[in-house]
Design a protein around this nucleic acid. Structure first.
Lengths: 269, 269
DNA sequence: TCCTTAAGTTTTGTATATAAAACAATTTAA
DNA sequence: TTAAATTGTTTTATATACAAAACTTAAGGA
């Protein structure tokens, strides 16, 4: 994984002066373990991080004694510890937008009978902050905390609205565009086109996206200075939608709900 | 908060040799900000952490550039950044407890015909990790990812079992006890009483809790060292329960299911 | 207005965290 | 079974992270 090394180098070269390397590396160890699909050894961690075994040893030692990492009985394999949990949920608890949006999402769910969601942009990913489950078709295939690539999701395109072309290019410079469906843009130029279309239209409808038989209607939420700060959507299996009423029913409801949330964030049309 | 300092000292004295102080302090900055109910300045962070302003500056600089902290427009106030979210949810995804508990929760649902749930403690909140819907009485009013205040829920009291009185007081020191029903403790003393009762009894029955016409039967799940790590419950509208069979039927089933899950986590009575 | 205090930033000498190397303990291969 | 390779741990010389002090800017108070 040369990516890990590159990111490390990049951070070091750019912000050398005040950087605390031990901290940076420790947090990246947590993410490396989070992304790995199995517990890792010290040697593996060191290799992925691009540091010596002795340094990896000291970092894991610190994290383990603090409760951010746990080990198996032999102290050979490191996995995430319970102390990391507090951080993620503390973040969620402070996002006022969740509390503000909640009743509107519930209203939208009740009107459309489809699960509704709230998401923001976190780096190159769409991050789901809340989901309100449909009462009729029980399930949503998205849960709070889940992430999707920005480039490959309609919510992501809306969230990039208002971003300059050069900023978009900078953000996706070294990203491989994997084709997740026929709608996935294959390169940056196609992505920029999608972003501009979504921006102009003010909503996105997607059918058969990311997985078979799922559909999405999504619209942007603006803050007091008119920037896109979040998106809401209704989504679920195709069986939950009446496709004849897409433009006349679902879209207006989603767009209007997004606008109401925006107004509660201080947005004035 | 002298606690922060003490913990720091302790860690240093005990494990001096291989400790990475920058990492330890950075993570504690994240937790300090997570626990604070407002964004903090560099000076405040330094004070709470017990380090100089210049060190606090370097730590926040590092965390901010990595996306673990965000700042307001003036770069004066620091709050948690979106990157922390990934860590918490990665932990949840790996917690075998959800997979281990699932079949037992389903069995409990089938026997009792009431929706069953799994929850853990996350800070001052009860966090629902899984719900298994009743097939007869329509819905559960709880969904995965939802949170309830620890002090106001029977599950929360059980989850606080084994916690010392002083730790309980510290945790709820600055919490306002809102009365959510006639069963809600009105202050810390009443809460401690509830916790001890729940701990002694080994389960909690609650009728008309949190909302009209809802009941709960809940019991604790223990890990291999006998600590409470989770709770399970059955809950739903009163219409789903046969109240004559509370003690003879529902309670034994819930308690026994909790014990089976505990055994699968390594607990030995 | 000027003075005082406080907070953020930068510089710098020094205490110390770090990576390499050595060592110990496993695991793998022949 | 023995040798070679790999991994975890300890030591240690040195590169560097740290706290203090200096500097800069902003906020209050008289």
């Amino acid at each position: 994984m040369p990516n890990n090394l590159n990111e490390n180098e990049l951070l070091h070269k750019n912000h050398d002066r005040y950087f605390v390397p031990g901290l940076s590396r420790g947090l990246r160890v947590l993410e490396i373990i989070a992304q790995a699909d199995k517990p890792l050894t010290i040697a593996e961690i060191g290799k992925k991080l691009g540091v010596s075994r002795s340094s990896a040893f000291r970092i894991t030692y610190t994290l383990r004694h603090m409760g951010f990492l746990s080990t198996d009985k032999g102290d050979k394999l490191f996995d995430l510890g319970p102390r990391v949990l507090g951080l993620g949920f503390a973040y969620l608890n402070r996002q006022d937008i969740i509390k503000i949006a909640k009743p509107f999402l519930e209203g939208l769910r009740d009107k459309t009978e489809v699960s509704s969601h709230l998401a923001i942009k976190a780096g190159r990913e769409v991050l789901y902050l809340d989901n309100v489950l449909s009462k009729t078709s029980f399930v949503s295939n998205i849960s709070t905390g889940e992430r999707r690539p920005v480039y490959a999701s309609p919510q992501g395109w809306l969230l990039m609205g208002g971003t300059s072309e050069s900023d978009v290019r900078a953000l996706f410079e070294d990203v491989a565009f994997k084709s997740l469906s026929e709608h996935t843009p294959a390169n940056i130029n196609q992505l920029i086109k999608r972003i501009r279309e979504a921006e102009k239209l003010g909503y996105v409808i997607s059918r058969g996206f990311m997985r078979h038989g799922g559909s999405i209607v999504t619209a942007p939420v603006f803050n007091e200075v008119g920037r896109v700060v979040a998106v809401i959507d209704i989504s679920g299996p195709d069986s939950g939608f009446d496709f004849d009423k897409m433009d006349s029913f679902y879209v207006p409801h989603v767009v209007e709900t997004a606008r109401e949330i925006s107004r509660n964030l201080g947005f004035r049309d």
